[in-house]
Design a protein around this nucleic acid. Sequence first.
DNA 1: GTCTATAAATAGATAGAC
DNA 2: GTCTATCTATTTATAGAC
Lengths: 211, 211
Amino acid sequence: MAKRRTRKTSDRGTRERLFAAAATEFATRGFAGASVDRIADAARVNKAMLYYHFRSKAGLYGEILRDMFGSVAARLDEATPRDADPATRVRVLVETIAHAAEARPHFPPIWLREIAEGGTHIDKDTLAVVGRILGHTVVTVEEGVRTGRFKPANPFLVQLGIVGPLLMFFATVSVRRKMPGPMAQAMALTTEQVIDHVQRVTQLALEGRPS
Amino acid sequence: MAKRRTRKTSDRGTRERLFAAAATEFATRGFAGASVDRIADAARVNKAMLYYHFRSKAGLYGEILRDMFGSVAARLDEATPRDADPATRVRVLVETIAHAAEARPHFPPIWLREIAEGGTHIDKDTLAVVGRILGHTVVTVEEGVRTGRFKPANPFLVQLGIVGPLLMFFATVSVRRKMPGPMAQAMALTTEQVIDHVQRVTQLALEGRPS
DNA sequence: GTCTATAAATAGATAGAC
DNA sequence: GTCTATCTATTTATAGAC
């Protein structure tokens, strides 16, 4: 996000390149599968610099997690409309998460892996940020219920309904492109289509069925 | 599922224990993070036996994948009601996938990881099985559209809406149990609640909104 | 089928010169 | 800030005795 420590000469680029290379390496191979050597090579930086800037492999990974979740939380804080009707808030919620996921291609795979691993690498501070993200859904649901527009619903379940499909969609973007056969184009979807669908489904789920 | 090769003495148990130990190891650590030594130790079996029975770490993992996806496909083949109305078919679809995921605790984490990794470890045969699973959703949607009960929808998107929330729910079961704070019980959900919710949401999405 | 011993490669991390 | 060289631990996998 910003510069971290005093730099005597041209630090510019080195740290950022390591960060970027690590993001893709962690996304494609996972934390355990990622190699510090490969990260350094991809960044065209000496391996020792990785330890100089990030202390350890885990330290580097932790910063990527903080950046990821911090970005979503910040976007939500900023985008959430004050005094808007619940339906709009749901739309903004879905849209914001989707755009945050799309802005960082490493985001969906890493998030999926963290879920699979039970958040092993998520420290207390980062966990608080994750809580803030969920909090947006909580207040959106509560607001809707309070104004009588939504039926009571479990916010975590609502969150699963939003995040689950979105993450799986974005995480499979690259795979679906190189998929052969007739099913290939059945799985071809645009970001807008997916956002639309999740928005619609979430609203329907919250409004309750007429019958 | 059944015995594989000739056994001269008491093979019974060894192979199965390796399989079971590997399933949990792969689920908690991922393919790269899993250790052959740890698997053998957990199974209380000599490490060399792992190579005797499964040829390699990848071979063992491949069998677990085949078993996982094969189980879902088989359950779907069996459970899908012939000549039932589309709404029922959707309910069975969701229910069957959920129960398959619940029956194998290693299933949701491993599936999530495979998605994150772009199916790197999935061979051609296993991919065909995955296709068969998606096929059930495809025909369910088509059937509903043909009989005028559903509006046209992208089957892959429908699948994302079912599998995404279910996998994330089951994969986070153990984590949510040991979570502190007030959010803990907000995230406490039963399998039935989740199945109900996903069934309802999927139907609403397919039926289209009345307005 | 089961075990011991070991090969061979790769991992993360650090010391120390510049 | 940057680099070389290297230490140590761990990894998957196999050879070969029983």
